[in-house]
Nucleic acid binder design. Structure first.
Lengths: 243, 243
DNA sequence: CTAACAAGTATTGTTGACATTGTGAATGAT
DNA sequence: ATCATTCACAATGTCAACAATACTTGTTAG
């Protein structure tokens, strides 16, 4: 596995591990490995529940197990893996209830970001958000392969929203929650109709922020994430019944 | 430093590192060390910004540096320390803005917990919450030394609120945010008057939850944390001016 | 055929040594 | 006196080997 081996998704923008890239200091081996593993997990190269063997990773990156163990702890921070003492690390495998839960928490936090931006937003941030929302419209017509790209831009938008508030903490948490359920977000936005509804809500959110309507902005943001959530859960339950 | 060496605060209830104690499996050395260090940090035995030297800790616990490094990563997850590559770990040292930010995020999340509980709460959880709120009243009369105990019960209440929703994720995040600012919460609730206001709001929140008033419960919960926040920030700014 | 057991293997936990990088004191120049 | 430079020391980063635990496979008894 190398840096350029992204499989079926290509968006690569935004910090995958927001806690890391804070200074110009060189990343340690552990952090480099964590970053690459994080990309692999987010790009579905590991199945949920799959075990991550320390020796396998250390061979792959040609390092000793020390940095690998540290990398796994970093990924645990990001919610991407679960570490069980003496049993190793597995790619986080959420139940339907946990997926639902994660979406709801994210909805509330994005709501907070929206509220803050409605109160006060920098014009440069606003412009970037506008540009992304315009691009969303173009991805609501074609077939399913647009889903991944749409979700990629959604991710950028979530990032811009949070980062625009100036809170690294909020950004970090929302990103973590986003990544934990990105697989299900893709599922939820798999049809053009669903993406159309989503894009409309994004536009409404933008209008609320521009109007400085704090309460409305928060509500719309919750609605926005809530929509993805409902779609994802619905599909998940169907899949579950099919098994 | 041993397990019984708590300095000036004694409340010890609730999981300090919620991510850990999930199974009956024996804790690894790293997790034991993380737990003890977390207690020390929360009990103000380390000053914010103080460096935590790996060798010092490894000597103190008579283990090698490997588990210590892992413990520090676990504490990073909990937001208690900050790790800078090649520069080591320091006890998290928040700016006034970051403290403010952390309180606001927690307010929103506790608001979500309150909303969920208003929708559906188990009678056993309700009873436990009632009991704690009753105890809060007793700590609003005496002098400043009650503050730590009051905050301890507040912590238990936050935990009961979150745990009552059944969301481990929410509980974990709120706990992390709580611990990150516990020092400032103590400062914020240092006078009996402030604790009286806080206790009244807790009672109101309980009433909202019992009445099943979701919107009101969320609002009151935000108010509750917002109160601590305002008090803490006010005191912090005063202190800052004094320097 | 299933269930319990046991031995062997694979994997994680821990250690101490070595390599690399950051830090601070001492020295010297401006 | 202040600032830059050098060098020694201290701290973190990494490694490979050993220890302890968990898992798997094969066996045997029921």
């Amino acid at each position: 596995m190398t840096l350029g081996s992204l499989k079926h998704h290509e968006y690569n923008l935004g910090p995958i591990l927001p806690n890391l890239a804070e200074g110009p200091q060189a990343l340690s081996l552990a952090e480099q490995i964590a970053t690459q593993l994080a990309e692999s997990i987010i790009n579905d190269e590991y199945a949920p529940g799959a075990r991550i063997h320390e020796v396998a990773v250390s061979k792959e990156f040609q390092v000793s197990r020390g940095p690998v163990r540290e990398a796994l702890r970093i990924l645990e921070n990001a919610g991407l893996v679960t570490i069980q003492p003496r049993r190793g690390a597995i790619v986080s495998n959420l139940t339907v209830e946990e997926v639902d839960d994660t979406f709801e928490i994210r909805a509330v936090l994005v709501g907070l970001a929206a509220r803050r931006l409605a109160r006060n937003i920098a014009s440069t941030d606003l412009a970037q958000i506008e540009e992304r929302i315009a691009r969303l419209q173009d991805l609501t017509t074609q077939a399913d392969q647009d889903a991944a790209r749409y979700v990629g831009i959604s991710q950028e938008l979530s990032f811009l929203l949070c980062a625009g508030t100036g809170s690294e903490r909020l950004t970090s948490i929302v990103y973590s929650l986003f990544h934990q359920t990105i697989r299900y977000t893709r599922i939820g936005l798999s049809t053009p109709e669903r993406r159309k509804t989503s894009a409309k809500t994004w536009a409404k959110l933008l209008a609320n922020i521009q109007a400085g309507a704090e309460d409305e902005a928060e509500k719309t943001a919750r609605e926005l994430v809530g929509h993805s959530r409902a779609m994802a859960i619905e599909t998940l339950r169907k899949e579950q019944r099919a098994d």
